[in-house]
C-alpha cells in the first residue's frame, strides 16, 4: 500500500482550474518530486495535501486513512510534516525554540500544568530541549541553537526548518521548494540533507523548480502543467519525455 495516495484531486479558484483531476501515489521510503512551470499548481497541490486549502473534488489518503477535510494541525499529528516556500521561522525565537515548537505534538503539558508550573512539566521541558538539540545536531546546525532563527543565513534557516518539521517524527515530509532562494552550494547542501533524512526512513515529497536538485535526489517525478498531470516516472524517463521537454523548452 502506498504511504500517500492522491486520487482525482481538483481545486478551482473561480473559473481557474488550479489543480485538475490529479492522481498519483508516493511509496514508503522514496523521494518523490512534483515539478512544473510557474503557475502549474504545484503549491496549490501541496496546500491541498497538507490541509491548508480544501479541495473541490477528490481524495487524499495517508497511511490508508482519508485526510482531506482535516485541519493542518490534525494532518500534522497524523504524521505528515511540511516546510514552507518562504521559510516561516517564528520571529523572536531562537533556532532551538523553533525546533521546540516542532515537538509540540510529542508533548502534553496543557494550560493548567503550565500555569501551575507542575513538576511533570519540568521533566517534559528538559526532554523537549534535549530532543530539539539532537535534531539541530542531526541537521549540523547545533552551533546556532541560541541564535534568533530569523537572523540566520537562508541556507541555515532551511536547515532549522527541516529540524522543526522532523521534530514531530513524521512518516512523510512535504518540502515546498526547499532550494528557493539558495545559491548552488547551499542547494547542494540541502540535497545532501534531504537524502540524509530519507536515510532515516522518512518519505519525502517535494515541490521544486531547481532541476539539478530534483534530478539528483528523486526516485520518481510527477510533472504538472496548467493544473494537470502530464507525466510521471523516474528522472531518466521524465528527461526523455516529449511532452515534458515541450512545456519546458517550447516547440
Amino acid at each position: 500500500m502506498a504511504l500517500l495516495e492522491v486520487t482525482q484531486l481538483s481545486k478551482r479558484f473561480g473559473g481557474l482550474h488550479a489543480v485538475n483531476d490529479v492522481s498519483f501515489t508516493v511509496q514508503e521510503g522514496t523521494i518523490k518530486a512534483v515539478i512544473g512551470p510557474n503557475g502549474a499548481g504545484k503549491t496549490t497541490l501541496f496546500n491541498l495535501i497538507s490541509g491548508t486549502l480544501a479541495a473541490n473534488e477528490g481524495m487524499v489518503e495517508f497511511r490508508g486513512q482519508a485526510i482531506h477535510g482535516l485541519k493542518p494541525f490534525q494532518i500534522a499529528r497524523a504524521g505528515m510534516a511540511r516546510t514552507f516556500q518562504n521559510i516561516k521561522m517564528f520571529p523572536g525565537m531562537t533556532a532551538l525554540e523553533n525546533v521546540m515548537v516542532g515537538l509540540h505534538p510529542r508533548s502534553v503539558a496543557g494550560f493548567w500544568a503550565g500555569m501551575l508550573n507542575l513538576p511533570s512539566t519540568w521533566t517534559e521541558e528538559k526532554r523537549i530541549k534535549e530532543q530539539a538539540m539532537d535534531l539541530l545536531a542531526l541537521l549540523e546546525i547545533e552551533q546556532f541553537a541560541h541564535v534568533e532563527a530569523a537572523s540566520l543565513a537562508f541556507g541555515q534557516q532551511r536547515a532549522v526548518e527541516f529540524a522543526r518539521a522532523l521534530a514531530s517524527e513524521p512518516r512523510l515530509l512535504l518540502l515546498d521548494e526547499p532550494a528557493a532562494g539558495l545559491n548552488i552550494y547551499e542547494t547542494a547542501e540541502v540535497a545532501r540533507l534531504i537524502t540524509k533524512i530519507q536515510g532515516r526512513g522518512i518519505t519525502v515529497l517535494l515541490v521544486e523548480h531547481d532541476m539539478s536538485l530534483v534530478m539528483d535526489i528523486s526516485d520518481e517525478i510527477v510533472v504538472l502543467s496548467f493544473g494537470e498531470r502530464i507525466a510521471e516516472g523516474t528522472p531518466r524517463e521524465i528527461q526523455n519525455n516529449k511532452d515534458v521537454i515541450q512545456i519546458y523548452l517550447g516547440e
Binding site: 494541525f73 500534522a76 514552507f84 521561522m89 520571529p91 523572536g92 521541558e125
Partner: peptide, 23 residues
C-alpha cells in the same frame, strides 16, 4: 511553558504553528 511557546508561535506565524500540530 510549552503552551506559552505555542502561543508565541501562533502570534508569529499562525500557518506555520498550525502545520506544527498546534490547534
Amino acid at each position: 511553558s510549552r503552551v506559552g511557546r505555542a502561543l508565541r508561535a501562533i502570534h508569529g506565524a499562525e500557518d506555520a504553528a498550525n502545520a506544527m500540530g498546534i490547534n
